[in-house]
Simulated assay, not measured.
Amino acid sequence: MNGFPTRAPVELEDRPREQQWLVDTLWGEQAVGIVGGEPKCGKSILAMDLAVAVAAGVPCLRHFAPTRPGPVLMFPAEDAGHLVRKRLHGIARAAGARFETLDIAVIDVPRLRLDDPDDRGRLQQTVERIAPRLLILDPLVRLHGVDENAVADVAPILGFLRDIQRRFATAVLLVHHARKSGAARPGQALRGSSELHAWGDSNLYLRRRDRQTLLTVEQRDARDLDDIEIEFMEEDGEEPSFRLRQPPQAGVAPQPETPERRVLKALAGARAPLSQRQIRQRAATRHKTVGAILKKLVQEGRVERNAEGGYSLVASQPDKAAPAANGSDPDAGRFPVPTAHA
């Protein structure tokens, strides 16, 4: 027995930036990770959007370009074949890709279990044959019979998928459910063991807020993006696909409408002071969050609270300061008031 082989740091691979990404700033080259979110928030659609991007060489969400397109292997455990076909067709059409030539291989079996040695062996053989750039397994809960809360049960499954990633130089994407909770970070809301959050190199999380869908991007070895606001689009009876809600500027992800912004818009659109309950309803934001935001805005002098407990934006007071030399109000811009929705 001779022990493990070693290399000096200078002998390790050096990878230029364009080779660090499978899909630019969204998913790392040969990264393992999770597309997560609450049920019915579009996780499978986002995973398929990534699949079409990699397979056809078109931008994911019509913006994030794949750097090295190639084959995709996927197993949609919950959807019938005709639904998978319809969804991929709709996404391909929205992305401007030819559906007939999509380089996607769909595993066509009723059952695949990652805790079954025989199924593991067959999956490895399939990955070796297809040589995918991306492997998608959707969703994790249908791919095993173990206790997701037990590290001892979950770790071998994640270790097996990491082994596939390393042996076959492929990225691995798991679709997984999140609990409905107020976790500070979306990854902490994933159902089951914290190993799932820690395992990912690239993680994408979807959250519904009122009529908005926010995409949070987490990377192990790169700067995270700001939250991205996306929306469903439907054309000519096709299955819906995602797109960015606002056109990106200079390669920067669009900023989401934050809870504070929604509170300010609710106040700006009111003709009379609003109670905290009314603000919570109009801003579609949790009671505790609204309370913290209102306290902050009052302390900053941007919102005032009357004797009856109603809140309103602080009115401009031009008589408190003389106009500037150029005739502008010196307080202009200090407390910007967002315009209300039409």
Results as ranks from 00 to 15, higher is better:
223 R>S: 13
290 V>E: 08
242 F>T: 01
249 Q>H: 07
270 A>F: 03
260 E>C: 11
291 G>N: 07
260 E>F: 04
209 R>A: 15
215 L>E: 02
179 R>L: 11
165 Q>M: 14
208 R>G: 14
191 R>L: 08
225 L>H: 08
291 G>W: 09
233 M>A: 11
224 D>W: 13
257 E>H: 08
214 L>M: 09
222 A>R: 11
173 L>V: 15
267 L>D: 01
207 R>V: 13
241 S>V: 04
168 F>C: 09
255 Q>K: 14
166 R>A: 15
164 I>A: 09
185 R>P: 00
199 W>Y: 07
159 G>N: 14
249 Q>I: 10
241 S>M: 01
231 E>K: 11
270 A>Y: 02
285 T>N: 10
293 I>T: 06
239 E>Y: 12
197 H>E: 15
185 R>F: 09
219 Q>E: 09
245 R>G: 08
220 R>E: 04
163 D>M: 13
162 R>Y: 12
180 K>I: 06
271 R>V: 02
285 T>K: 01
229 E>V: 12
277 R>Q: 07
197 H>A: 14
227 D>Y: 01
242 F>Y: 02
260 E>Y: 07
211 R>S: 14
277 R>H: 05
157 I>K: 02
253 A>Y: 05
187 G>C: 02
221 D>Y: 12
176 H>Y: 05
185 R>H: 13
234 E>R: 14
233 M>S: 10
248 P>Y: 08
236 D>Y: 01
279 I>F: 05
224 D>S: 10
259 P>S: 00
272 A>L: 11
238 E>P: 00
186 P>L: 07
211 R>M: 08
195 E>Q: 14
173 L>P: 03
209 R>Y: 15
259 P>H: 01
266 A>D: 04
202 S>K: 04
193 S>W: 02
194 S>N: 14
283 A>F: 02
202 S>L: 06
185 R>T: 12
231 E>L: 03
263 V>E: 06
188 Q>H: 12
230 I>H: 02
161 L>Y: 15
243 R>W: 01
197 H>L: 08
234 E>S: 12
187 G>W: 08
243 R>A: 09
162 R>D: 15
243 R>K: 09
177 H>V: 04
223 R>T: 13
219 Q>P: 06
268 A>Y: 09
206 L>K: 10
196 L>V: 13
234 E>G: 05
263 V>S: 00
288 K>W: 07
192 G>V: 05
223 R>N: 06
183 A>D: 13
287 H>L: 13
172 V>G: 11
270 A>L: 00
180 K>D: 03
286 R>F: 05
194 S>T: 13
257 E>M: 12
256 P>N: 04
202 S>I: 03
239 E>K: 07
274 L>F: 02
200 G>M: 04
161 L>P: 10
220 R>N: 08
178 A>I: 01
176 H>W: 08
187 G>H: 08
268 A>T: 03
156 P>K: 01
184 A>P: 05
216 T>E: 15
209 R>G: 08
162 R>G: 14
210 D>M: 11
184 A>S: 13
201 D>L: 03
209 R>K: 14
294 L>N: 02
160 F>L: 06
270 A>H: 00
171 A>W: 11
174 L>N: 09
255 Q>M: 10
